[in-house]
């Protein structure tokens, strides 16, 4: 299972890096989205997978069994990371939307106003 997860994560990273290198800004957003999924799954897998158990304390018990239950902390980390990527993604979508409205293109190669020194930046 860990091997399968590792391969899934690898494919996700590969996909996101491929998308990040495209010129289209919408694909850039998808790349960032998949990148955060890949990182979350990595946290989940790296801390060890436990089959068939949750981190919820059974009825009648007071503590989690230390040796059989999965570690709850990575799930808390992932939840935090998901919340953050939720906010960041929403911002990026609005930003891309604004860029498209103002610059009139979705091609990153046409967004060079900040690279050429001086003259274009004034325009």
């Amino acid at each position: 299972m860990t091997l399968l997860m590792a391969m899934t994560i690898g494919v996700l990273y590969a996909c996101s890096l491929y998308l990040l290198q495209r010129r289209n800004v919408v694909k850039l957003v998808f790349g960032l989205l998949i990148l955060s999924h890949a990182a979350n799954l990595l946290i989940f897998t790296a801390s060890g997978l436990v089959r068939g158990r949750t981190t919820i304390i059974e009825a009648g018990e007071t503590v989690l069994p230390v040796d059989t239950a999965p570690d709850p902390l990575p799930q808390a980390l992932i939840l935090t990371a998901i919340v953050i990527s939720f906010g960041v993604t929403a911002f990026t979508i609005v930003l891309v939307h604004r860029v498209n409205a103002v610059v009139g293109t979705d091609d990153l190669d046409d967004m060079r106003a900040t690279d050429s020194a001086g003259k274009a930046a004034d325009a």
Binding site: G87, A90, I93, V94, H97, A101
Partner: peptide, 13 residues
């Protein structure tokens, strides 16, 4: 409230 701000910002345009 923040989710509504995001949704409405996108919806208004």
């Amino acid at each position: 409230s923040i989710t509504m701000i995001m949704v409405l910002t996108l919806a208004e345009e």
